[in-house]
């Protein structure tokens, strides 16, 4: 047993981080976010999408004979963790899942989204909509996350949340989607921890850095604990692929991403409440991801059922 990352996995992690820092650094992020207020939905950056495709982000788990990278779930989790850190926008999980079945998805030529409940992400930008739900008649929503356009499926439509039945063909696909979402949440939780620690070390009040105050440093410590427990849960679920373990990883990752973003905001004080600080982007995206299947209640139901 050696649960830690292999040398290749660490290299992959560093490679994806460098790629995203180069292609979607802070300036690109802030340019994409733009100014607050009503306006057209932000367009999906098709050139960036193709670059992600070229880098193998979508084809990561496809066998080499099918033009893929031939890696497994643990590697996909590491890549999506980096995407979560960088707040990379777009229907990444759906396009990644479609890579084996839908032409153009693996290369980033197509943009694919997913519908399995009330909300659909990136519907206008998508070339194709997959999933057990139905996006027909969906109406745009004023999305809380400036970088995730949302549509709402009308009530009573055939888009009702389909909790995957055991043995159903979509079951494993939904589980992988949940795991990759959890990985994004993990990346976000780690990033907001770093941001809080950095700010607590720099910001001075009462003649010393605020990180010297126990009330502040203990918030930061709690953020790290949440992150590291989540990391074990997400990596463990990636190795076993067990659907119950994946539900647990999603539950803990949603909690860590949302609570860490809130604590990060708190550590930043008034600055954290501004549009200019990035922390609200992490919080809003974490809220969006937490609404994806399984939500906290749905995950807890899966996990409770497994105890009997």
């Amino acid at each position: 047993m050696d649960f830690r990352l292999t040398g290749d996995q660490r290299a992959l992690q560093a490679g994806v981080r460098a790629l995203l820092e180069g292609r979607f650094g802070r300036e690109r992020l802030r340019a994409a976010v733009g100014k607050p207020g009503p306006g057209p939905n932000p367009p999906l950056d098709r050139a960036l999408w193709r670059e992600l495709g070229d880098a193998g982000f979508f084809a990561l788990r496809l066998p080499a004979k099918d033009g893929g990278v031939g890696l497994g779930l643990p590697e996909a989790v590491l890549a999506f963790e980096e995407a979560g850190r960088a707040l990379l926008p777009g229907p990444l999980v759906a396009t990644h899942l479609a890579a084996g079945t839908l032409p153009g998805a693996a290369t980033g030529e197509s943009v694919v989204t997913w519908v399995d409940g009330e909300l659909v992400e990136w519907l206008d930008a998508a070339d194709c909509v997959l999933g057990p739900g139905n996006a027909a008649g969906a109406v745009p929503v004023r999305s809380v996350d400036p970088l995730t356009p949302l549509h709402r499926v009308p009530a009573g439509a055939d888009g009702a949340r389909a909790a995957p039945a055991p043995g159903a063909a979509c079951r494993s696909e939904a589980a992988v989607a949940a795991l990759l979402t959890a990985a994004e949440q993990l990346g976000s939780a780690a990033r907001t921890t770093e941001a809080a620690v950095q700010y607590a070390g720099e910001r001075e009040q009462f003649g010393r850095s605020i990180g010297a105050f126990q009330a502040v440093k203990q918030l930061c410590a709690q953020m790290l604990v949440r992150t590291e427990v989540t990391r074990s849960a997400v990596y463990g679920a990636a190795v076993t692929g067990d659907p119950v373990e994946i539900a647990g990883a999603k539950l803990l990752a949603d909690d860590a991403a949302v609570r860490n973003a809130r604590d990060c905001l708190q550590v930043h004080g008034g600055m954290g409440f501004t549009w200019e600080a990035d922390v609200h982007l992490h919080l809003k995206r974490a809220w969006v991801r937490a609404e994806r299947w399984p939500t906290a209640g749905e995950a807890a139901d899966v996990l409770a059922g497994a105890l009997l």
């Binding site: 119950v244 209640g297 139901d301 497994a306």
Partner: peptide, 8 residues
Amino acid sequence: RTLGRLNA
């Protein structure tokens, strides 16, 4: 659900 969360 509390028991489910504790399972996680």
